[in-house]
């Protein structure tokens, strides 16, 4: 079959994966916006959230057969909530342990990077030891039927759930940043931290909130990922770097940019994987990263947390 016959199916698959990238990318972009710091350990926040949600859903999963109806909704909701909480807790701890002590000492930028890599290695190896070094599967939480067809492409329950949850989180975050007092505080710190202090903004609190919100999103995204594929101690790296790519593509520090970047990257990967070979997906994603860094390093929408709103 030719590309155009598959176009809509590839689009739907691309948007599904892309919405996950977008959800993770927001964590990079928010923290960068506020601290001008690339939190390279964010991929492990995603991984830990994924395990948290997976174990919670598995513990509640009844024996025998695939659940349906309300039970499925309940299991997905619990998985999302626990995943989000684990992600938030991981991000909070990371900020406390790996970054705050450096901030207190006004450490140079390189120190943060090293600290991030250290925290990342620690989390990966701890997860490997605790959860094993094989893939951990999550049994089906619902019947993954085709809900409807769109231009001849099948839309499954799974892609619908992922896309709907991801979009709900993206819209929610956008409203938070653009329309609430807390969001205004976040944008103020991103634009001019000293002046934000003069306005009465508690910068330390904003930093914590930023990490926690990024962690909530990444953790919930991790559960969605585990629901589709599986979880493993080393699962964070590739989606993490891709989400980072998405953030850079949209303009790091820019909330709407991260959303756009995630969806675009998902689409590019999906189309590219079909046109060349599925195994080239990752290569394509990283080519995109290299290409933006060379051609338009400030990203599609530019770097500014404030401008997103």
């Amino acid at each position: 079959m030719g590309f155009f016959d598959q176009f809509w199916q590839l689009t739907i698959d691309g948007l599904m994966v892309g919405s996950l990238y977008a959800v993770i990318a927001l964590g990079y972009t928010l923290v960068y916006g506020v601290l001008q710091l690339i939190n390279f350990a964010h991929s492990e926040v995603f991984m830990l959230g994924s395990f948290g949600g997976l174990f919670a859903a598995r513990a509640l999963l009844p024996d025998g057969g695939v659940p349906g109806g309300f039970q499925s909704v309940y299991l997905v909701a619990v998985g999302l909530a626990v995943g989000a909480l684990c992600g938030a807790l991981a991000a909070f701890t990371l900020e406390r342990v790996a970054y705050r002590p450096l901030r207190r000492r006004s450490a140079p930028r390189l120190a943060y990077l090293i600290s991030a890599i250290g925290a990342s290695l620690f989390a990966v190896n701890l997860a490997g030891k605790e959860f094993g070094r094989q893939n951990v599967d999550l049994p089906d939480l619902f019947h993954n039927d085709t809900v409807f067809t769109l231009f001849g492409a099948d839309v499954s329950t799974q892609s619908l759930v992922i896309f709907a949850v991801a979009i709900a989180m993206l819209v929610g975050l956008d409203r938070l940043v653009a329309g609430t007092r807390l969001g205004q505080g976040i944008r103020a710190v991103a634009q001019d931290a000293d002046t934000a202090v003069l306005m009465g903004v508690n910068v330390e609190r904003i930093i914590i909130v930023t990490f926690v919100v990024g962690g909530l999103l990444a953790g919930a995204g991790g559960f969605l990922y585990a629901m589709t594929f599986n979880a493993s101690y080393s699962m964070g790296f590739v989606p993490g770097v891709k989400a980072f790519t998405a953030a850079v593509l949209g303009g790091i520090g820019n909330v709407r940019g991260a959303m756009l970047g995630g969806l675009l990257l998902g689409l590019v990967e999906s189309y590219g994987g079909y046109l060349f070979q599925a195994s080239y997906k990752d290569v394509i994603a990283f080519l995109v990263l290299v290409a933006i860094l060379m051609i338009r390093p400030s990203g599609l929408l530019g770097e500014r947390l404030g401008r997103a709103a």
């Binding site: 944008r187 634009q191 002046t195 306005m199 947390l305 404030g306």
Partner: peptide, 20 residues
């Protein structure tokens, strides 16, 4: 040091950040 990406209204609201 106005917040450059915020509107005039948003900047003024920043002044009332602690008490709205």
């Amino acid at each position: 040091r106005v917040f450059p990406s915020m509107s005039v209204r948003e900047n003024l609201l920043m002044g009332a950040y602690r008490d709205r």
